[in-house]
Design a protein around this nucleic acid. Structure first.
Lengths: 159, 159
DNA sequence: TTGATTTAGTTGCAAATGAAACTATTATCG
DNA sequence: CGATAATAGTTTCATTTGCAACTAAATCAA
């Protein structure tokens, strides 16, 4: 093993390459859809998605749940606030913090995006049997644990 | 189906999100390794990888095989040529084209990177049984066909 | 209390990216 | 032929991205 001369690497069969290409293709497609139909970016959508589930969380919590970095959350949040989709209420007890939430308009967009996002996911998963889809999630979970052992997000089903 | 109010979307279970996060984590890690140990980028590595298998192909062919766009190939190739890892021989019959290939130094880097790349892939796949790894590739293939139906690259095992 | 440290969030900046425009060369078709 | 279209590859430019530095506020420790 690890004999330079003998080993072969075929890009098409190389897992990091395949993941990257697939993920890029999927991201591209879904980003186009979000942009075209709702005029939001993927990052804006991630924020709406977590706020839809957990209203009133802070920017830092949003960053943790979306795996975005803080500057990205800050910028995407600003534009969502400008557009009136998200509200920011600064915490009276700790004035560094502020609670983010969906406005009425934001909730409407959220409710509109959900079925489109799920439909696209279903489009992908239509190629797979339910058992295969289940297997895929398990495989991705195990790979993510290896690739990012510091993160335990993948197991969490409750908060 | 597609009832906005009833559907739920949990980011952690949403396939496009999971693919993106996993792919980013893997890419980050492997890019760090390439950078640290060989001082090359992922894109440079992709080019070395296809040239290692198919010497003398053109820039356009490299782009097709690595799924990079033409500017990206152009830039990564330039720096590889500057570093003396890749050679460019312009085609006498069609002077728009030129054949790219690995120099001796390039072949050495190629041979050195291969086992490290495979070792990292093995590190990921160590979480999976051989049957699971096989299943994973099949699942990725089917997803890629849905996400990029225009590409038939995933089936090709011969050139 | 006050000086040092930590935390929340924003801003600035340098590098990476991708689309479109551009150059040079070859192919097509009247 | 000669004009037009197509192709290979590079360059330009605007946008995106990720990191580091920064501001403001709270906590900790003497």
């Amino acid at each position: 093993m690890n004999d330079a001369a003998g080993d072969k690497l075929r890009l098409d069969n190389f897992l990091p390459y395949r993941l990257s290409v697939l993920s890029n293709a999927v991201s591209r497609k879904i980003a186009d859809m979000y942009e075209r139909e709702f005029d939001i970016s993927i990052w804006q959508w991630r924020i709406l998605a977590v706020l839809g589930e957990s209203d009133g969380i802070t920017s830092t919590e949003v960053a943790a749940r979306t795996l975005m970095d803080k500057p990205a959350v800050s910028r995407a949040t600003s534009s969502l606030i400008e557009r009136g989709l998200v509200t920011r209420t600064s915490d009276t007890a700790d004035r560094r913090k502020s609670a983010l939430g969906l406005s009425t308009a934001g909730r409407e967009v959220y409710n509109a995006v959900i079925p489109r996002a799920l439909a696209y996911e279903q489009e992908l998963l239509a190629a797979l049997s339910p058992e295969d889809a289940e297997a895929l999630h398990g495989l991705l979970t195990r790979l993510a644990q290896i690739a990012s052992p510091e993160r335990d997000l993948w197991d969490r089903r409750e908060d």
